[in-house]
Computed example of a mutant assay.
Amino acid sequence: MSKIKMICLDIDGTLLNSRHQISKITKEVIKTVSNDKKIPVILVSARMPKGILFLQEELQIKQSIICYSGALILDESRDVLSKKIISVYDLEKLYKLVQCEKVHMSLYKDDEWYIEGMDYWAKQESDITNITPNIVDFSELIKLWKKERTGPNKILCMSEAGRINSLKEKIGDYDLNIYPSKPTYLEIMPKEASKTSAIDVLRRKFNIKQEEILAMGDNYNDMDMIEYAGLGIAMGNAPDKVKECANKIALTNDEDGVAEAIREFVFGDD
């Protein structure tokens, strides 16, 4: 096996335990691998920058980050390396459909989160991420984005599982990257955005070979990067379908799976 030269970690369900925390042992291992061994540890998530940067600070690392499942990449100086957006016209059609379906819609652009009202779903997401959204009129925001010829990096729809499944079926023919991150969450990204495409941008930036990448994740939107990496690892808490595409299965996120995998497959290379 080639020596690992870049580590790509999903956040929720992977880096974070079920209490949405990074364990002490995981912090220590990541700090050592990033700062002492000089191996880039890249946090890869559907989250916005604000939801990732505070975790970097907690880990005491400074690296590029992959946000919105690859739709936005920031370098270590927080400059934009790559950005992809959803067409404002697709957003307009989705907004009308979501209103009919009575599903919550959140819009994310750059490092801002927009909602139309602080309902149950927005409050839940705000409590998890510790981020306060901007409350705006989406019709007015869509008009503004049309003038600016721009759009969101990500749309998040939240509701009961049945409504989410119904919505997913109705927007299946849109030319977008659509997937449920959990039964009550439907993530919508630009078609060309993926965790793998973003990792490949950083692979070229660091002049690293594909087989020198270790990637870890726990959910369906992590499958592409797990399959892409030279060493793709699924968390012990991942669904069976995710585990099937991995080279190795780690312990769960409540058993320090990330720390133990890095110890075995990165420190073990010494």
Rank of each mutant, 00 (worst) to 15 (best):
I39A: 04
Y228K: 08
E264C: 11
K83C: 00
E125S: 04
Y120P: 00
L59E: 09
S194C: 13
L144K: 15
D119Y: 13
N17E: 05
G151H: 04
G151C: 07
I115V: 15
Q210L: 02
S87W: 05
N134V: 01
F267T: 02
Q63M: 07
Q99N: 15
A238P: 05
I233P: 01
A193S: 15
D10Q: 05
K123A: 00
S82C: 14
L91V: 14
G232T: 04
K37T: 06
K38V: 06
L55N: 08
S139E: 15
M6Y: 08
M223A: 09
I164K: 01
M235Y: 08
Q21E: 15
I262V: 15
S23C: 09
K205N: 07
T196M: 03
G172Q: 10
S159T: 06
G217H: 03
Y174H: 10
E140L: 00
L202F: 11
R203T: 03
D111H: 11
S166R: 14
W145Q: 12
D256R: 07
K241G: 01
G236H: 01
L231I: 04
E192R: 11
G268R: 14
E255V: 03
I233A: 04
Y89S: 10
L59Q: 02
D240R: 14
L167G: 02
K93S: 13
N153G: 06
M6E: 04
D218Q: 05
K146V: 11
N207E: 13
K146N: 09
L144Q: 13
K50F: 08
A215K: 04
L186V: 05
A122L: 08
V29E: 04
I171M: 10
G51K: 06
N253G: 03
K5W: 01
V88R: 02
L94M: 15
Y68K: 01
